[in-house]
Design a protein around this nucleic acid. Structure first.
Lengths: 203, 203
DNA sequence: GGATGTGAATTACTTCACAGCC
DNA sequence: GGCTGTGAAGTAATTCACATCC
């Protein structure tokens, strides 16, 4: 049984399934209920379970504990996923204080900036460090750490370069625009203007 | 020629196309160049143009001005899209100060919170108002306004209810979890933990 | 009755490949 | 040579529908 990779669409729903189940008291859940909790359809839920080889009980539903274990396993949820935040403006500060990270096994280990006025001051429980020191701070396995880019658009490419030079291979970018980076670096992009435009379009 | 609706995937790329073209000096652009600027492929760009009935010049490319006009038109970009931000913590403040909105034709017209300590104080150039007054402030066309929910998870449903009660029909939700709302309300969701989990998975 | 499990059908999206035009 | 325009093929994702089991 060579493990086929999960469809991307299925993977994309796992965090939402997890989020719903972890915040729920129930011990079993039907495809219909899970669909409601994750904003999808019961047919899709059953397809996804099939894809992951999860079986439920007819007339009852799926075992919540099994689902949580399997989803976490598939996603590779680990306890100590480390995050550094690059750019300590309002957004960087907000992210540094965001409580939701820890609940998902991520935690912020450092804030970085290039502005001399900010370096050395404290924010969200961390002393802001010089971005130039990022490589030194990351230790022997820099690719275990995720960098969140919370800098203005014009600084994004430079900040990304610094992160990559320090050995980071996973970036979450809040600045608009496309980054030019080596293929082995994975980037996800959160663009507020894009979201607003699409929201306006679809309403 | 009954105007077929654009494929969702095409619409989803329009903001990125626009973002690239608006920040570019060029007067024509090839599918390859545009693909590079919007993180997609040349074949997809050409497909999207076909879908919108845009023709270019062989050997040259597409006319940038035409593209910008058409994309804006399709997206329904208007000058005075108004935003209110509900929840003035770190994230709400960050969003209130975010400069990128105006560039896309959106602007923040008010900040709302329920905390008596915050109401009345100033942030990002606005006096924070009581969420209970939202309906009064929106004027005759509340559904023209988009609400951004920047509240903790436990407050999200209540804040969403307040927005909907005030006549808002478009929500951008930063809190984790699914909101239970009438069908005529459009919601988009930005979940940081989800993004991080997917980033970790795909790297 | 309630809910899973799954082949089959459908729809959506992407990629290929190449003729046609500048 | 460069690049568009587009049918056709291929791939991915969703939806249907219903037999099966608790």
């Amino acid at each position: 049984m060579a493990k086929r990779p999960l469809p991307k669409a299925t993977v994309g729903r796992l965090p939402r399934y997890l989020g719903y189940l972890e915040g729920s008291e129930r011990t079993t859940v039907s495809s219909k209920q899970l669909a409601l909790g994750a904003a999808t359809t019961d047919a899709i839920v059953r397809r996804d379970m099939l894809e992951m080889g999860i079986s439920g009980t007819r007339g009852v539903g799926y075992d919540v504990a099994t689902l949580i274990t399997t989803f976490r396993d598939e996603l590779g949820v680990e306890e100590d996923r480390r995050i550094v935040i690059i750019g300590v403006g309002h957004l960087g500060t907000a992210l540094g204080n965001y409580a939701g990270f820890d609940a998902s096994g991520f935690h912020v280990v450092g804030l970085y900036d290039t502005s001399p006025q900010k370096i050395g001051s404290e924010e969200a429980g961390h002393i802001i460090q010089d971005l130039d020191h990022l490589a030194d701070d990351l230790g022997p396995n820099p690719s275990d750490t995720i960098a969140i880019l919370a800098v203005p658009a014009r600084a994004a490419q430079g900040a990304a370069n610094a992160a990559v030079a320090a050995g980071i291979t996973s970036l979450l970018n809040f600045a608009p625009g496309v980054l030019d980076l080596p293929d082995e670096v994975t980037v996800r992009h959160v663009d507020l203007s894009t979201e607003l435009q699409l929201l306006a379009y679809f309403s």
